[in-house]
Amino acid sequence: MDFLVVNFAEILFYCLAVLTVAGGIGVLVFKSPVHAALSLLFTFVMVAALFLLLHAELLGAVQVLVYGGGIMVLFLFVIMLVNVKTLAPEQAFLSRLAPLAVVAGVLLGVLIAFALIFGVLVSGHGDGTALRTVGGAEIGNTEAIGAVLYTTYLVPFEIVSVVLLVAMIGAIVFGRRSAGLEIEGGGGES
């Protein structure tokens, strides 16, 4: 019992980590797109829980709100609009490359695991203070993020707003029905 109490954070972390990875695998293996999307939602929530475990409360909340809320709703909307019940089996060119992809994925996974294990053994690991400190003084997570976002990281923050604008222009360019243009190659409605 003592073991459980002392190592509670570690045990919780490994449980959450396994569930996160399980959710990710679920996205790949579920045949129904809705199930895959829900599996992705499960992964997002587990990642949010991992953030909470590191005392990064704001990131956890943002993870749930933005990913669990906004992005998931968008996914489900698209799935409903396109109205796919089950995913068709992969086309020939994809299944031809599948063994190659598996080999590459396994190799990359082994490489990352190797680097993680040895990297942690060599240098030890942090305790997540970087997530909630600013200028060396540990203050609340939300306050810390707000402080650096509007001072040190002002330029990247502003540029991200332009990124969002460009995404919007892109959506308009592709979504708008243009007068005077004819569809080429009989591709149907654009």
């Binding site: 990247p156 990124v163 592709f174």
Partner: peptide
């Protein structure tokens, strides 16, 4: 800042590549 700049460049260029939206 490097990464954010890269994303802004990349996103604009993706849209430009697909700008002739009626061509397959």
């Amino acid at each position: 800042s490097l990464y954010v700049g890269l994303e802004l460049m990349a996103l604009s260029v993706y849209v430009l590549v697909g700008y002739f939206k009626l061509e397959v």
